[in-house]
Design a protein around this nucleic acid. Structure first.
Lengths: 351, 351
DNA sequence: CCCGTCATTGGAAGCGCTCTCAATTCCTGC
DNA sequence: GCAGGAATTGAGAGCGCTTCCAATGACGGG
């Protein structure tokens, strides 16, 4: 033991068996006499022996670590609510599966963004990766990872990425469609839509759903105003101001996420509009603010924790498969249920 | 190379040197002829060789991984803004220091909460730990960790913990004091204070600062109402309702965090109060909502990202010291600057 | 009572890298 | 041209654990 922490050999020595036997006991292997097992366990306890994962994994060629990658740069702060939700769910999943979660952020505008992620797996730091938007839409990255045989699960990937790697998420197109249908059902006929950052395909899907519903309802191009924001409160404020200043004012404004919707609310308040009487405003995500703000925001709830949890389940599944079976698991996309949450920021249009 | 990934031996073979030499080149060791270095580098490049961290760390006895621990249970959702801020800062620090960040949540009410954290270091999963409240106040845990010689840095520890382990944070007592002084300067004479969860000593410090300012101002016990919340919006709502229903209404309400302040705002609005004319409400933390809410919340900003970043710096420092020097580094507490952010939820009392 | 089986157990070869220490080579200065 | 010392380089011993394979022992059938 040489003063340091006890090793498996110390346990073996103390219990009078071979190292291999201790290993068997530790890993619940078969073919160990009960009496021997007890003897080993007693030694483990007496020595306060703890497996050195570092060594176990070197020998076993794994790490029991999953990487969760998300984007962060100085201009667009990551949405903390969104990421915390996913993280919490993932953490729960990891705890159950006996994995650890390694966080990794990369500036999506940096040149070596892909390299940094790839290195994580090349240097054997983790057994699998969970990618969040917009990385979950980076097909090149996905393919590189696949070439390295690295299990990957994407959070809310767009259609293209869904063909390349497995993913989890809500059906954004349907969510956008349903939300729009709801607004339509309230009697709205003139719409505004604030899109999110380009490249976030899942947010773009919400827009597709919106278009589908609009088209079905026979609403003409002249009655819809579309703008592109960047998911921030600020952009919601600015774009809404632009939309409202524009004369041909919509009666319903749909935003691709809550932050922008809250910005819209802010802007509308500022010009003296009553919400929802004068303008219905709705968002996406159901972040905590949407409940706190006045009026409470009608929005779409997506079960972030469930998504994070499911992502871990899926990836663990793939990791196991990778080591058991021969052929790689087929790519799949798991849809988790979303829900339109009706609060008070949307109502039938006045007059 | 046997089909798998190239190893250091493959590089050694290809470049015609010994394994040790390749290692030296890889680690920037001295005493390698330039010509040899180039040869090795070329082989590395040609083979697309990547160090297997797993192996490097087993040999070196380190992991280059830092653990960030935070509490989470089902009843009290962790404050995503708070944790994301710290995490982001820590992540940035890790990236610069060449470390990875392992996240770990533990239910603070579970029995084995300490064991789970200890195991993280016992099983050699990380080289150091960053503890957030309330774990940063768990002196028993801190001592156990110290016994294991595990570098630890606490985020916003209370006075007791500051003596046991190093930490970073703002000076909460002074922050509470300053905020109260500010309210006093506005002319308030009757106060309400909503405390946070018991055991979160740093939040308790804010209260101490409040008491100090109140005492200095010669305000009597009869003019302050104190309640204990649990940091949630809900508790802010409920406790404020209680305070307002109580007759002897304060003109200023100070909450130990923003969520509760927002709840207070909500409750006050509900009973028809004008904020800040009828009641000034202030919080702590400067979360994003505080800017979005109406009226914008006067609060105390603490630089979370800086704190997270600094925590990593400190821990890396300790890790290096642990391996170089003999004596352990002295315990220290780094104070980062906070700032009272004056917005519109506080004003001189009416009448 | 002997031999094939099967449950147990031990031995030893790695996993891929770091690091100590000895061997070798290269320069100096005289 | 050669000794002494510094600069390089190579060999090999781990780091602590998993796992393949051979060895041992017990048992039941012939």
């Amino acid at each position: 033991m040489r003063g340091g922490k006890p090793t498996i050999d110390d346990v073996a020595a103390l219990s009078g068996v071979a190292r291999a036997t201790v290993s068997r006991v530790l890993n619940g292997g078969p073919n160990v006499r009960e009496e021997v097992r007890q003897r080993v366990l007693k030694a483990v306890d007496k020595l306060q022996y703890k497996v050195n994962m570092q060594a176990r994994f070197l020998a076993g060629g794994k790490t029991q670590v999953l990487g969760l990658v998300y984007a962060s740069d100085l201009d667009s702060e990551p949405n903390s609510f969104y990421h915390s939700g996913l993280e919490l769910g993932a953490l729960r999943g990891c705890a159950e599966a006996g994995f650890q979660l390694l966080m990794h952020t990369v500036n999506q505008h940096s040149l070596g963004k892909t390299a940094k992620i790839i290195e994580l797996v090349d240097s054997r730091r983790c057994d699998g990766l969970i990618l969040t938007p917009p990385f979950s839409d980076d097909c090149d990255l996905l393919r590189e990872l696949e070439a390295r045989n690295c299990p990957v699960v994407c959070i809310s990937p767009g259609l293209a990425a869904q063909k390349v790697a497995s993913g989890v998420g809500i059906d954004d197109e349907v969510a956008g469609y349903e939300m729009t249908r709801y607004m339509l059902s309230l009697g709205h006929k003139k719409f505004g839509f604030i899109k999110g950052l380009e490249g976030h395909l899942s947010a773009e899907e919400r827009y597709s759903g919106f278009r589908r519903a609009i088209a079905e309802a026979g609403i003409g191009e002249a009655d819809v105003t579309v703008m592109r924001g960047n998911f921030t409160f600020r952009s919601g404020v600015d774009l809404t101001a632009a939309i409202l200043g524009n004369g041909h004012r919509p009666s319903a404004l749909i935003c691709a996420n809550d932050d922008m919707a809250v910005g819209a609310l802010f802007s509308a308040h500022k010009v003296g509009l009553n919400i929802p009487q004068d303008l219905s405003i709705v968002g996406f995500d159901d972040t905590p603010v949407s409940e706190i703000i006045w009026p409470p925001l009608t929005t779409v709830n997506q079960p972030l924790k469930t998504i994070g949890y499911r992502a871990v389940e899926m990836i663990v599944e793939r990791i196991k498969a990778g080591k058991t079976a021969s052929g790689p698991l087929p790519v799949r996309f798991d849809v988790v249920p979303h829900k339109v949450v009706m609060r008070e920021s949307a109502s039938p249009p006045q007059g």
